[in-house]
Design a binder for these strands. Structure first.
Lengths: 190, 190
DNA sequence: ATCGAGTATGTATAGAGATACATAGTGACG
DNA sequence: CGTCACTATGTATCTCTATACATACTCGAT
């Protein structure tokens, strides 16, 4: 949560800046947005987000204003500073070093030969269905975006272009995953 | 590395069992195999693998025999026990809870509107090329597998089927990633 | 003859991430 | 009137993952 060296922030920090760059929000709203089903490309629980926001504030990347909130503590609304915007802007065009790929389902496919054939087929069929459902959700999101924003989705200077870009990735990834699961299930049930 | 509860092993343990189920190996060979370029679907450094093997041995899932090795310590060759095989077999057909998706490139696409257009286009073009190269490597591996094993690749009771299955996933994933990167670069360079 | 790379196994430490604990106000529902 | 869910922010703790440290033999190259 705190930085290792000058200019070195964990990816979560940039994820928060990327959301805040679209407009100020509270920590709670950020946490909601970054939770499991919603966070399309980066997720974090609130226990990671609150300390990270505090660290960003200590370094002048965000500012907060507190009104009194419903709970025992004040509700804080965060906004990006110019320094934060510059940090984000620089980070966006740097190439990340490749992340480790870790997929438990692929690992199971690698060991599928040790298991009962029918049970294994059922696993991949179930995975296929789960990803088909997820795909349908994303397609619904795409329709909504398309209806609401139309041609602006193709303009890379519009914030909504970012939503569209990430959604396109999600759609492609889910379609490919469904395809592979279906292939696996077919292989195992012949 | 040690288990949280009875019957609860980290995924790395199953990854090791999955490799050992194909034949006994040394910890070093396992570590080589699980290192970055080779481990298609699960990676770990040796500092994780050695303690995990020790934990599996304490619980009777693997056995080791030590010959004297080149270094200051004996070289250990590990083999799965029946208990280990049963553990793996049961695990293979259980459905994993969905892992968090974390992709720094997609996160950058979400914030691409804040950056310089040409620099952003260059980033996605570079990513496209990197994944095209990775794809070419996987295609080479597929050719080699196909030439060496032929029809056995379609037999789910053969260990090599697992290699083929994981490789198919890799091929599909890389192709889809290349496609999306190319689309992103096109969008940004018009 | 020395240097570096590869073989081989381990420990130490720090950071990232997940889960659980803690607190308290409001509004809905039975 | 009590319980549940939601808003809202934070801390504590544990596990997983990555990086660095440690040791020592062999073999090929300079």
């Amino acid at each position: 949560m705190s930085r290792a060296r000058e200019g070195e922030w964990p990816t979560l920090a940039y994820a928060l800046l990327a959301v805040l760059a679209r407009g100020e929000t509270t920590g709670y709203q950020l946490a909601r947005f970054m939770e499991k089903p919603v966070g399309l490309f980066w997720q974090a629980p609130h226990s990671q987000i609150y300390p990270q926001l505090a660290a960003l504030e200590r370094d002048g990347m965000v500012t907060s204003s507190a009104e009194r909130g419903p709970g025992p503590r004040a509700r804080k609304t965060y906004a990006v500073t110019d320094a934060g915007r510059a940090l984000l802007r620089d980070w966006v065009t740097t190439r990340p070093e490749p992340r480790a790929v870790r997929d438990e389902v692929v690992l199971r496919s690698y060991a599928a030969w040790t298991a009962d054939r029918a049970e294994a087929a059922a696993l991949f069929r179930a995975e296929q269905e789960a990803h088909e459902q997820r795909l349908a959700e994303l397609e619904q999101m795409a329709e909504n975006l398309s209806a609401k924003h139309g041609a602006r989705l193709s303009d890379p200077s519009e914030p909504i272009f970012g939503n569209w870009a990430a959604l396109q990735r999600g759609l492609g990834a889910e379609r490919e995953y469904v395809r592979w699961c279906a292939w696996m299930a077919d292989q195992l049930s012949r």
